[in-house]
Design a protein around this nucleic acid. Structure first.
Lengths: 209, 209
DNA sequence: TCTAAATGAATGATGATTCATTCAAGGGGA
DNA sequence: TCCCCTTGAATGAATCATCATTCATTTAGA
């Protein structure tokens, strides 16, 4: 019963399909991808996909959740190695931008499809994505406890601001065919931006509300 | 020839269609919206839409460009009233979050559809969106000239970080049905975040790179 | 009456999903 | 060792609904 697949198939067939879906969705977008394209890319018959996934939507959602779970587990581990909130923040930011190179296809899918799905799939709650945001919260909370970050920092807003800044940079990278900037450089700029702010000196800051 | 429409139609029919499109797209998303839904919402026959727009894609793109043009012109005017870079930045941020209340439907469409279109409509360049980013650049450049902002600030990265943070907050607002936060509060938090950074004191900042 | 605008039914393509059929691995009997 | 069976996996052609788009016809202002 737990057969590996007659045609001596490689690793689990389900995973082949998931990989193929990432490839096709990242190239054409969810709505422009045909199930038969994915089947072909996976080297599988159209109908086979329905043995592993309920339907096309389920394929996309499984992809989100399963792959994001890996990303979250990975970043958690990396961040834990950092010493103090600033160091951890730096690691988080560098890791996020690094994903652009390590997991290009996945990121391209997340970038453009996650929003759609959040908004229009009636009952889909992006659990794993929220966990990713939680990692940021934890860093910010640590910073407050340590006294590194302002006590009046609004974590709910700040974590989204950090994520949003990263996400937008990643989007710019993904959209520009010419790859005109280096993700690592962008990462260090963004780190400074949050750590130091835009201003030159503390004086300027006091000047306004 | 420049008839107003037999049925004593209201303002320009084209505009009625554009408004209807915003409404329908914001509710269901581009791909799930039928042209006939839009026609119905506009009080117009299906075919009429094709008298004013080349096709469904063109309808979406016209919507982006024409409505964004209004938004850009408006924010430019408001920002110009600010005195100095920090004041202008504050106005920009407040205006962006304010759009959530003033132009809810439009923002919902932009939030989720602009990315898709950027990525998958082969030759669409979101000119008006880029102009919106330019408004941020201009503020940042001004800050550098004034000496308010760091001389080594990377404007290309920073403008996207600012936009990204705002966009993400707006998204969170649009997605949460419960409307759990006030856009105006979020605006002031984000302003402080960029103006002051995350840290408590200058000392902490110097500590790391 | 003439003309441009508007209509909306009909067309044609597309593509998700189904399901009757095929395939092949493992087991048991000779 | 060699052959059948049985069974679940896999297949992919056919189905069927869904729209975007067209265009012959109607409408009403000038």
């Amino acid at each position: 019963m737990a057969r590996r697949g007659p045609r001596g198939g490689g690793p689990a067939k389900r995973d082949r399909i998931l990989r193929a879906a990432i490839k096709i969705f990242s190239q054409k977008g969810f709505f422009n991808s045909k199930v038969s394209d994915i089947a072909q890319a996976a080297g599988v018959a159209d109908g086979t996909i329905y043995l592993y996934f309920k339907n096309k939507d389920d394929l996309l959602i499984s992809l989100f959740e399963e792959k994001m779970a890996e990303v979250v587990a990975d970043v958690r581990e990396r961040v834990a190695a950092g010493d103090g909130a600033l160091s951890r923040l730096k690691i988080f930011i560098e890791n996020h931008m690094g994903l652009l190179l390590r997991e290009a296809g996945l990121i391209e899918v997340l970038q453009v499809e996650l929003r759609q799905s959040n908004k229009f799939m009636k009952d889909y709650v992006p659990v794993k994505f929220l966990e990713y945001l939680d990692v940021i919260s934890e860093i910010l909370e640590l910073g407050k406890r340590e006294g590194t970050f302002r006590q009046d920092l609004n974590v709910t807003v700040a974590r989204r601001a950090v994520f949003g800044a990263l996400d937008e940079m990643a989007l710019a990278y993904v959209l520009s065919r010419k790859r005109k900037y280096d993700p690592a450089d962008a990462a260090s700029e963004i780190y400074r931006l949050f750590a130091e702010g835009l201003c030159t000196t503390a004086q300027n800051r006091e000047g306004r509300t």
